[in-house]
């Protein structure tokens, strides 16, 4: 019989204690607003990439994932494209799960294993998974940014910050059209049609780069901007459909 982490239990129990909801909403409404740093998609009001997105070199990871998906790796290594990336990226970070990702790193990028090792041994949380994908994107020179967005309740005025990782792809090499075709094909059989519709055209364009939101570990396809389902797993407040970017934490 294992020992339960009672500190964690007590902390959660404290969160779920009954509250005077009306009073709490009023307090939140009256609290001074956090200074907002807006990110503008057209003017690029964010740090700029120090250099253009380099040539993608993700073949080793794609091959590992392709094997698990029953796809002939040769078809990937010969001529992988933006379409291939769209087709297999969801599998990299969602379908095959963390175990396969770690195995792929062990095999193809042992120099990165030190990043994954604690996760391999102890399990993983969503924020840790985000750090892993940052390391992966870094290692393959895929630019990314970390956004904090404010989720806003449409009716009750509550606000909560949510952090996302977004991967950026240069607009040549078939982005976004071919990439999105790959995404759509990837999700055609696995998910509902409206998820596919969401994923389509949801890359955000900035300085010749399309950014796709990676919902690390949530099961949502890349590019989905409605994070309602993600939020609903962490909070009893689910009516958070509006959002605005309040901070760009990183951009490479």
């Amino acid at each position: 019989m294992g020992r339960v982490n009672k500190a964690n239990f007590d902390e959660i129990l404290d969160q779920v204690k009954p509250v005077d909801t009306t009073q709490e909403i009023e307090e939140k409404k009256q609290a001074p607003k956090q200074e907002q740093i807006r990110w503008n998609t057209t003017t690029g009001d964010a740090k700029q990439s120090p250099e253009p997105a380099p040539t993608l070199d993700i073949a080793p990871l794609l091959v590992a994932v392709a094997r698990t998906e029953g796809v002939d790796p040769e078809t990937i290594t010969r001529d992988y494209s933006a379409y291939d990336l769209g087709r297999f990226l969801p599998a990299i970070y969602e379908t095959v799960g963390t175990d396969i990702l770690i195995e792929a790193v062990k095999e193809h990028r042992p120099d990165l294993y030190h990043v994954f090792e604690p996760v391999d041994k102890q399990g993983i949380r969503g924020d840790q998974l985000r750090e892993i994908y940052k390391a992966v994107l870094d290692s393959y020179h895929i630019p990314y940014r970390v956004l904090t967005v404010k989720q806003v309740g449409e009716e009750d005025g509550w606000e909560i910050p949510v952090t996302f990782l977004e991967a950026g792809f240069h607009e040549d090499r078939g982005f976004p059209e071919e990439f999105e075709k790959g995404l759509i094909d990837s999700y055609k059989e696995e998910h509902k049609i409206d998820w596919i519709r969401h994923a389509h055209h949801n890359g955000q364009h900035n300085n010749d780069t399309y950014f796709y939101r990676l919902h690390c570990g949530s099961g949502l396809p890349p590019g989905v901007m409605d994070s309602k389902r993600l939020v609903s797993t962490n909070s009893h407040i689910v009516d958070y459909t509006l959002e605005e970017v309040v901070e760009v934490q990183d951009y490479r």
Binding site: M1, G2, R3, V4, N5, N8, F9, E11, I12, Q15, V16, E94, T95, G97, T98, D99, I100, Q122, G123, I124, R125, G126, L129, C216, G217, S218, G219, T233, N234, S235, H236
Partner: peptide, 21 residues
């Protein structure tokens, strides 16, 4: 409210470990 979701693969941890993770 207290437990996040992520795709964790086929390994299922004992319930006590989940209160850590």
């Amino acid at each position: 409210q207290g437990v996040d979701y992520h795709k964790s693969g086929r390994k299922v941890p004992p319930a006590s470990q989940m209160m850590d993770r």
